[in-house]
Amino acid sequence: MRRLAATIPVLGMVALFVFLMLRMTPGDPAAVLAGDNGTPQQIAEIRETLGLDEPILVQLGIWFGDLLQGDLGQSYFFKKDVTELILLRVEPTVALAITTLVITVLVAVPIGVIAAYRHGTWLDRCVMGFSVFGFSVPVFVVGYILIYLFAMQFKMFPVQGYKELADGFWPFIHRLILPSITLSVIYIALIARITRASVLEVLGEDYIRTAYAKGLPNRVVLLRHALRNAAVPIVTVIGIGVALLISGVVVTESVYNIPGLGRLTVDAVLGRDYPTIQAVILVFSGVYVLINLLIDLTYSFLDPRIRY
């Protein structure tokens, strides 16, 4: 409950930033909002609906009021309700994010644990090497290399594009594999690293020595004692890493031509479509904060010392 209360100011702060971002820029916000091809009539209309002649606090109030009703404004570029626009684009992005998350956890946690257990060996060095590498190669370079190899040379996957789940599971997943792998590289690097570091730290704890002194086999000590205790930091970073995932989505969707929220963001920026930019930031940040809230709530299952 306390945790829930703490997220409200954060969300409020995000909304405030998004609001201020537009008002702080020089020039007429109404003109900015209407975009490059806004007509004078549209500008006047916006001025009216946002109450731009009112004091800034009143404007903030109107804006917040609309926000709470789920009204994210009008896109003058796409000529649509922004809320509607976003709902249309949600599926590909969610699909991409979930497959990436699954791949990441399945790969990163085991290799992180092995690296920690075989600390200092070549296996450990390989994992760490991959991790630094994963952090350093930009998402789009990974994307193009994978396309070049697996789509163009080996022709195992389609080069680009997206099929909805409604079109059948195989076409859907077939087109998601490469983008998800692309997106998961940096995420795996992050999670493998934190898993290794956390497990390594736990392995130095007194209760691990106790577990060995009880005559438990290595596997049991490693999984039941070490990994269980390392779970909180690992899960925390999985949550923080969602920010990385969101940033990656924007790029990956552009590389693979997937019509998701990431592409919407880029298109909105290129078209100077501010209502959409604002909305996308709010949605992404809101999701990010909520995911981290959910993760915080799982702590009490993972660690009996944490109570809310």
């Binding site: 704890e205 020595r209 106790t210 002194a213 269980r228 009996p304």
Partner: peptide, 21 residues
């Protein structure tokens, strides 16, 4: 042999037990 023929207890009871079990 550990815990069957020979056992050990440690200095720090605060940290010698697994906190999540």
């Amino acid at each position: 042999l550990r815990c069957t023929r020979m056992s050990m207890i440690f200095q720090e009871p605060m940290t010698a037990l697994n906190p999540v079990m």
